[in-house]
């Protein structure tokens, strides 16, 4: 899609170059409510997500943080009976609108899941799968992107000699980094990470955490995590969810050292959840 659009543009008009707009917020959420059938899972939350920062969503299981995350790239559309009200503004468009082309949206707002889910293809094929669909067919071009995204995901050195081996032959941590690489290859602006390292061993976990910190230079990252240490280590801002409500949302340092709501303190100190 990317190249075809560009070619079209070149043919039709001259490329305007402007100074990049300094956008403070990449997403603005207003009064977001999410329902599963009759049950309300998220109760009217509002928050602004910063650009090029890591935002952590924490809270006990079932608090609505994953539901919220999945609504940002409309993955909840897959769940029968799920519907969302309110606004998630992304570049002046409401993501939740009927008019949104979810396929194009998901290219810009990528997602990495809790369990590593590589396709049963080669490592190379995992990354090129979506690129080919986007119209990039040239081998040299694909090779280039594969290398670049694997390097960004800090996986290149480990797999460069076996790009055409099955992705399932990788370890869990490597698989997860491959999933991140495959998302990076699509050049998203926002990356949604749903407990990306909870299924991994501590060493792989550390690698993925380093990677996330590295990635925020290029992407805005929202991460759901159950791991308090992880949230405090890697995130810039932290949002605490409890039974569908956004209880507190602030700079990570503030949340972990001096939260203003008692519930937040109780959760962080491990008194419940």
């Amino acid at each position: 899609m990317v190249t075809t659009l560009l070619e079209k543009e070149i043919g039709e008009q001259t490329i305007q170059s402007t100074v990049p707009l300094q956008m403070e917020h990449i997403l603005n959420v207003h009064d977001l409510e999410i329902f599963y059938g009759e049950k309300r899972a998220v109760n009217g939350i509002s928050m602004d997500i910063e650009k090029n920062a890591v935002t952590a969503l924490i809270g006990p299981s079932g608090c609505g943080k994953s539901t919220f995350l999945r609504s940002i790239n409309r993955m909840n559309d897959l769940i029968p009976g799920a519907r969302a009200q309110g606004e998630i503004m992304y570049e002046d468009l409401n993501i939740l609108s009927e008019q949104i082309n979810v396929v194009a949206l998901r290219k810009e707002i990528g997602m990495v899941f809790q369990k590593p889910n590589p396709f049963p293809k080669s490592i190379y094929g995992n990354i090129t799968h979506a690129l080919k669909f986007s119209g990039i067919k040239k081998k040299s071009q694909l090779d280039e992107i594969v290398e670049e995204s694997l390097q960004k995901a800090a996986l290149w050195d480990e797999v460069k000699d076996r790009l055409h081996k099955s992705a399932l032959s990788l370890s869990g941590g490597q698989q997860q980094r491959l999933c991140i690489a495959r998302t990076i290859a699509m050049k998203p602006t926002v990356m949604l990470l749903d407990e990306p390292s909870s299924a991994l061993d501590p060493i792989s976990n550390a690698k993925v955490e380093d990677l996330i910190v590295e990635l925020k230079k290029d992407y805005s990252i929202i991460i759901v995590t159950h791991n308090m240490q992880q949230a405090s280590r890697i995130s810039d801002k932290t949002a605490f969810f409890l039974s569908g409500d956004l209880v507190e949302y602030d700079a990570t340092e503030k949340i972990f050292t001096n939260p203003s709501v008692k519930k937040t303190e109780e959760y962080i100190s491990g008194r419940f959840g």
Partner: peptide
Amino acid sequence: DLKEASLALGITHWHTIKT
């Protein structure tokens, strides 16, 4: 998982089914 992975990469439903 696999279906979600493909859809989350911005691939259409039909292409996900096919590939």
